[in-house]
Design a protein around this nucleic acid. Structure first.
Lengths: 215, 215
DNA sequence: TGGTGTATAATTGTATACATAAAAACAAGG
DNA sequence: CCTTGTTTTTATGTATACAATTATACACCA
């Protein structure tokens, strides 16, 4: 396992396993063992176990005597997650509109504009990356740890399904425009407008994803 | 550390530390070390570290080279948490109204009635216990893992502040009545009514707590 | 053939030894 | 007296050895 800066092996293992599970690299029901992960990742059981405990807490794996069972995110989960995000992600945008600094605003602007840059190029991975970054920055700039902690795991769990959205040119273009509109409301420090636009944005994403996934 | 049934030491350590931190037993800013916990709890560093990782993920501790810094729940956190719960806990009640089974309904009824039993006796600990149980059962009976995962940590983090509410006779009696009303709506499988009553209940609790805490 | 008990193997659970990095103590020099 | 460089201590990070539990394979018997 390469790259060992200041970030601990336990953290790296967590990030990697979380991404692999949420991206669908491991299938639902697949059984892993700590020993298999030891040989795959090239680290000892200690950091692996610490990562597994956190993944278990997020309910994307289950640990039993048989091994580590991959759970992932079901379509029912997806439905529930988007329903929750419709109700609280607007709050994050509203709080960000109230609290954001000029410097943070520039960081947010960059995410919006890079996404706009990649959309006509159909670079799905980078679009997805900027899309994620936009939402996560808003969680952070809301200034609420509670909102951040509630929204971040929900957002990460949509990864696999968001990827598909981004590959659709029409939805991808609309989504980028919606981000721009939310950004403008936040930049104007108009909390109610930011809240409404974010709520609509999640509702649109939900409608698209659910139609696509057939739920 | 006594009692080692089927539940692992790591889990026991997590529960104990979480309760101690959220109840205010450890003060904000207090610094612990793994070694201190080893001697206090009588278990090795391994299960302690696994518990600490989970507590760190919940943002109620921070781990640094200086040791383990207790963070806990600030009044700002409390405000943010209740604002979130107002927006999504009604959804949990609505889903429970749709999905609850007769057997689960009886379990919920028991929590309501035991709370009603303890209120006139001013048994704060047991009232608090039944109050918590009522909400947590609804999270479970909502049938949504996402709602459960979002709401459970928020609910647990109010522990310290809820305790004070429960010691007030007037608020405690109202709260118990509100639980009864929510229960009746769920028992009637009236999702919109359950949602509205739960939202009002959280809003009332928020108003009381915030007035009391002076935020 | 089916079930049951037992032996075996495989897995997680826990403790501990060692590595590493940062903080703290301290001494020297300006 | 303050600053700075060095040493020492103290903390977490990681690997590994050992324990305990559970799943599995298999032989035996009804």
């Amino acid at each position: 396992m390469l790259e060992h800066r200041t970030i601990s092996l336990a953290e790296q293992v967590f990030d990697r396993l979380e991404t692999d599970i949420l991206s669908g690299k491991y299938a639902h029901g697949e059984v892993l063992t700590e020993l298999k992960l030891v040989s795959d990742l090239g680290v000892s059981r200690t950091p692996i176990r610490e990562a597994l405990r956190r993944l278990e807490q997020e309910h994307i794996i289950e640990i039993s005597q048989k091994g580590i069972i991959v759970i992932g995110v079901s379509k029912k989960d997806l439905k529930d997650i988007l329903e929750i995000r419709i109700r609280i992600e607007g709050l994050a945008a509203a709080e960000a509109a109230k609290n954001i600094t000029d410097e943070q605003l520039e960081e947010l602007r960059e995410a919006v504009e890079l996404q706009e840059f990649y959309v006509p190029k159909h670079d799905a991975d980078r679009i997805n990356g900027m899309d994620s970054k936009f939402h996560q920055l808003i969680y952070r700039f809301s200034g609420s740890t509670a909102l951040f902690d509630a929204l971040m795991p929900l957002h990460k769990k949509v990864l696999k399904y968001r990827k598909a959205s981004v590959e659709n040119e029409i939805r991808s273009a609309y989504s980028s425009q919606e981000h721009r509109a939310i950004f403008e409301a936040i930049a104007a420090h108009d909390a109610p407008l930011a809240e409404q636009r974010m709520r609509d944005h999640i509702a649109n994403a939900k409608a698209y994803i659910e139609e696509r996934e057939g739920v």
